[in-house]
């Protein structure tokens, strides 16, 4: 690691004030230190935010939950309110990483995970995300794990989080605070597509700090499923993952949500696809139609065409499971 200075403020405003162009906030550190050891990131200053009062999980006025950004992934997944009201989130978190990493990683940090693209991690290779303008090695290289949706000629990386896929399906919101004050963003708008600025994973402005994630009242607790397809049974990133959430009225879908992981630079949702579920009988044909719509425009690279078919099958499976009732 490149040497850096270290500060540990106790108040949010102090943390934000400390932040400069060479700074990074550190919470769990599980991805940041990983990248610093590879010299992918070389911040001059780390601002340790673990002293900030961001560890509460509280009820919001409207009846949802506000989750402090420093709540660990494990604590969140096993929180009684999450397990009972938002099992989709719990399942997604527990499908990711390992118990050790989930004990360390923070809620806010999970949103800021960087891609697992091989080239991003290897400083000996060109990568636009790491070094803008150097080129995208993945596009004509090893791209079995890369994006099929929303990629650009500059970047084909995928966002690696499981938690964010569930948060996207749940219409979660992100609370951030910076020198210009506080903002509240929809999670689906938080991450961005690579376009010609793949170095930007999300819409945060320099120095902004994630303070909380907010969950709306509706948790789809009785009909949800998180399906993660990967190369080994555990401790591997998703090739494709699906968060499926349904509000059922008998066997009729009143409202449906589908979010995909492992296929794009951000959790992938499409309202038009979900509308194909609403008011329909929960059966494979309806699920397949929604899947086809969601995957419309998918563009495979040399090694990842299978992801399109796989995603389609996974969507149908996840929706079928969700329709059958949440497995507790």
């Amino acid at each position: 690691m490149t040497p850096f200075s270290y500060q540990r403020p106790e108040r949010i405003d102090q943390a934000i004030a400390l932040h400069g162009p060479q700074s990074r906030y550190i919470a769990g550190g599980t991805n940041l230190l990983d990248l610093m050891k590879e010299n992918v990131l070389q911040p001059g200053q780390l601002i340790d935010i673990n002293g900030l009062p961001l560890r509460e999980i509280e009820r919001t006025a409207e009846g949802g939950l506000r989750i402090g950004a420093l709540v660990s992934n494990a604590d969140l997944a096993w929180h009684p309110q999450i397990e009972q009201r938002y099992p989709l989130l719990s399942k997604a978190i527990l499908a990711g990483a390992s118990p050790q990493l989930r004990n360390m990683a923070s809620t806010g940090g999970n949103l800021l995970q960087r891609t697992r693209c091989y080239y991003f991690y290897d400083t000996a290779t060109p990568c636009n995300k790491r070094e803008p303008g150097s080129g995208c090695s993945a596009r004509d290289g090893r791209n079995r794990i890369h994006a099929i949706l929303g990629a650009s000629e500059h970047c084909a990386a995928v966002h690696p989080s499981d938690m964010c896929v569930a948060l996207a399906a749940l219409d979660a919101r992100v609370h951030v605070e910076g020198t210009h004050g506080k903002r509240r963003l929809e999670l689906v708008d938080f991450h961005r597509l690579p376009g010609d600025q793949p170095q930007q994973d999300n819409v945060l402005i320099e120095g902004e700090l994630i303070t909380a994630i907010e969950l709306p009242v509706e948790g789809f607790a009785s009909h949800c499923a998180y399906l993660k397809v990967r190369d080994r049974a555990s401790y591997a990133f998703a090739l494709v993952s699906v968060a499926a959430a349904l509000e059922m009225d008998g066997d009729i879908i009143r409202r449906g949500r589908i979010a995909l992981g492992g296929v794009a630079h951000k959790p992938w949702r499409l309202e038009e696809a979900e509308e194909l579920l609403n008011g329909k009988r929960a059966e494979p044909e309806c699920f397949a139609a929604a899947a086809d719509r969601l995957l419309q425009g998918a563009q495979p690279l040399a090694d990842n065409a299978f992801k399109i078919d796989l995603a389609r099958r996974a969507i149908v499976r996840a929706l079928t499971e969700a329709a059958g009732g949440t497995v507790r």
Binding site: I26, G29, N50, A74, P99, N103
Partner: peptide, 27 residues
């Protein structure tokens, strides 16, 4: 592995298992 990918460095921090390679002592 020094990157949180193998678990060989697992220790108990305040009673909870963590990867000691991916956290700074100063924290």
């Amino acid at each position: 592995c020094d990157h949180g990918q193998c678990g060989a460095c697992t220790v108990l921090l305040d009673g909870r298992r963590i990867n000691s390679c991916l956290t700074l002592a100063v924290m």
